[in-house]
């Protein structure tokens, strides 16, 4: 026998992580994404993301590389935890779609007044028609994919966070045929 649940009952029954994600999106909708801003060194942020996924990538036999500039870049004014969340979303996706013996590369460049964080992989890539829509809420680019863990609001959350920082996020094809995600954040003046 099936029972139709009310929206509140549905929310109560969701796993906790999904509840937090739903609340985050709801707050973003209401222009109230809670953030704690501070000055952060961009290379240290990216390096911490690299370190968080280093062992996992090694266990999956994926090369995780990082390239940092030789000069010290300006700080960015951001919510450290939220930006780390963005990197985690991108790295989770990259690890999901990059096969063994593939490569994920993290890098950091300066583009005028913006810091540009790049996550590129040698995975299956994203079809041209999907590139604009993958940041939409609950969009699925591969209808045949059955692993529900890697779809849903992740990239949408990332976009909300980056937008809240007056930044930009986009995806292009990487030179090796996979995907290349760009996150631009303004430097702190």
């Amino acid at each position: 026998m099936s029972i139709k649940l009310s929206p509140i009952q549905n929310l109560i029954l969701l796993p906790l992580t999904k509840k937090i994600t739903m609340l985050l999106l709801a707050n973003a909708d209401s222009d109230h994404l809670p953030m704690q801003m501070e000055l952060c060194q961009p290379d240290e942020l990216l390096l911490n993301a690299y370190e968080k996924y280093e062992s996992l990538a090694a266990k999956k036999q994926i090369s995780l590389l990082i390239s940092l500039p030789d000069t010290l870049f300006p700080d960015c004014y951001c919510d450290r935890e939220r930006i780390m969340q963005v990197f985690s979303i991108l790295l989770d996706n990259a690890l999901s779609y990059t096969p063994s013996n593939g490569t994920i590369q993290l890098s950091l460049t300066l583009n005028k007044a913006f810091l540009c964080f790049v996550v590129s992989d040698t995975g299956c890539g994203i079809a041209e028609e999907d590139k604009k829509r993958i940041f939409d809420r609950f969009y699925r680019s591969d209808q045949a994919h059955t692993d529900k863990m890697h779809f849903g609001p992740g990239l949408c959350i990332a976009k909300e966070i980056v937008t809240a920082h007056q930044g930009k996020i986009c995806v292009e094809d990487s030179a090796e045929g996979g995907s290349c995600f760009f996150v631009e954040l303004p430097i702190h003046c």
Partner: peptide
Amino acid sequence: ELQLSGRE
């Protein structure tokens, strides 16, 4: 002064 990553 500089902030270091965990491994650094």
